[in-house]
Nucleic acid binder design. Structure first.
Lengths: 340, 340
DNA sequence: GATCATCCTGCACACGTGTGCAAGGCGGAG
DNA sequence: CTCCGCCTTGCACACGTGTGCAGGATGATC
């Protein structure tokens, strides 16, 4: 096995307490002993055992992350932000994915409890009430990303993009380009993200003095297939909308793809704006205008909030809303920006 | 704090040893006591402390994963495979990303040593010799994904896609479609992946009785920009190639994008095949024919190899090569398969 | 009733680290 | 020389769990 402080103690002819203090730069130790022991530890290749340390200190310096699937590029970028911020603060990340399987989700949370994660960040869109109880019971701080703390639990905060603002920005952009009949392709119904983005869309129309017409709100499912299917409904509308704001990029991708197949030029005859700014948005042809979610920042802020909850007993605001950014690309007919 | 077996022991009026055995379903315990204690543990919300258990058992049931960045979709899918397989075997995943910063890479490995990870999987393309020494020193099994164990170290195995076979498949496919002048757009020079794929490409040409022409081998950089820049060189060739096999999908995306901008129809006037099957390959327009890396399987196999190295002392083969799969989509003019 | 085997339980130690407290050593001051 | 105080070190316990060993209780057999 690996070397422990006892091994070092024996080699140095002192007690393990002395070694422990020497390595911790305790003021209770003589300068000579400290240097000698530190050199010895280095030479023997000593690496402290985080388990034992966590056991006695009651802190594991570990953050649990629960996601549906890491293969989702949005999730991946958030996790990237989480990991780098956690690392910078000396924390490690334990990653668990649920694949939308409720049973695995419960197991994941159980595992994080067993490992005594200091905090938990959930970047899973569907927050099972299943384990919210479970989590609260332990008193572990929880940060939810893009989902809300409905039950008003203690030590549970949430972070999300300002969906309403994003929807407003996207629609305002299309209005600014002269479009007057703008469709909205929704995501899965009942999702708060969807209703908020749609609310921002409606607000922008209202502020522009235009009527809200529910017939141009078409239903998708948050995936490319939803966008594809929405095209038929869109083509049937009279007068036909000249632009569409989509619930998310995947929906927009499906819509653009179907439009091209139907020989409907994008953006000349149909301008499209998505939401999320997934990596592919910049690469597709035409490149996709969209509202960029500050994914890396969301991860960073999630860790910061978690650590704040850990260190201070001061109450934190329940919710943090980050503003998205409009990225104008080719699909809306704004200024073209090529593949980088 | 959370409940320990001592708390349960006190509540049940027995010693902590008895509780420990009851929860472990030890045969040394009476049936009555077992049931009573298990019920009590359940009721008190007991979750065993993995730290303490790991400390005494010398096994943490933890797998460390080192990646450059999780935001890379290829890496993300591999990690997905790793996580799900690890989970199925009762292991947790500690994720560390290096961002290609050598210092962070070393810190990551140090952290995994401190946490006493039972095995380490490296899905980082650049294997720093930096920490290979470090890792071997600890005797922890290491599995490298898409990178080789050059130094022939013990307990270090590697898994990669069969690049040569993949290059052969892609080229054979283009040959089958009637193309006779097929370009190869390379990745970064000196990369073994690149030279192997190119070798498969050359082999297929050779087997078809065609000459190898180095002038149709163009240099890219593994990114979209490399593919874009390669187009100019390709257009300058006489006779102009009618097809191109690209080092990877990003290169292919850049090539297709530049071709469309230059009004060169894909696949009618230029058929393109990539390598990797990143998620966007299926979504772009035209959708991209490519060699699919078995990403999920690679992650799964990596965990299986790691666990095998842990449980048995039997020597394992150093290297495992997984065959990629040809995915025919629109960009090569094969049978079109739409966005799903 | 005595002896023995069987079954169950508790004691004590281990894992590796941190820390309160006591004590030893040493120097300085009276 | 003695006493006091400070600096340094070691002892012992703690964290939560697992386990070898001893011993107590119970039942069976002679």
């Amino acid at each position: 096995m690996s070397v422990s402080i006892k091994d070092i103690a024996q080699a140095a002819g002192v007690s393990h307490s002395t070694v422990s203090r020497a390595l911790a730069d305790s003021p209770l130790i003589s300068e000579a002993a400290r240097q000698r022991i530190q050199a010895l530890a280095e030479q023997m290749g000593y690496v402290p055992n985080a388990q034992a340390r966590g056991l006695v200190l009651g802190r594991t310096m570990t953050i649990g992350v629960v996601v549906t699937t890491i293969a989702d590029p949005f999730v991946a970028e958030v996790v990237q932000g989480i990991e780098s911020t956690a690392h910078a603060n000396g924390y490690s990340v334990i990653l668990t994915s649920s694949d939308n399987d409720p049973e695995r989700e419960v197991q994941s949370v159980e595992m994080l409890r067993a490992r005594r994660a200091d905090a938990v960040i959930v970047a899973s869109s569907r927050i099972g009430d299943l384990y919210q109880d479970d989590l609260e019971e332990t008193g572990v701080p929880v940060v939810l990303i893009n989902s809300h703390n409905d039950q008003g639990r203690a030590r549970v905060v949430s972070i999300s993009v300002d969906n309403r603002h994003g929807g407003y920005l996207a629609t305002q952009h299309l209005l600014g380009l002269g479009h007057r009949r703008i469709a909205y392709i929704s995501g899965l119904p009942g999702h708060s993200d969807d209703s908020e983005r749609r609310a921002g869309y409606a607000q922008a129309l209202h502020d522009a003095g235009l009527p809200i017409d529910d017939t141009v709100v078409l239903s998708g499912d948050g995936r490319a297939s939803g966008g594809e299917q929405a095209l038929d409904a869109l083509l049937a509308l009279r007068p036909r909308p000249t632009a569409a704001f989509c619930y998310n990029d995947m929906t927009a991708i499906g819509l653009v793809s179907a439009a091209q197949r139907a020989r409907l030029a994008v953006p000349r005859r149909l301008a499209v704006v998505g939401f999320d700014d997934i990596p592919f948005a910049a690469l597709m042809h035409p490149s996709l205008s969209t509202i960029a979610q500050p994914k890396h920042e969301m991860g960073r802020r999630a860790v910061e909030r978690a650590l704040a909850l850990l260190s201070s007993d001061a109450e934190q605001p329940d919710h943090l809303s980050l503003q998205g950014q409009l990225i104008v690309r080719e699909s809306s007919g704004g200024h073209a920006s090529g593949v980088r």
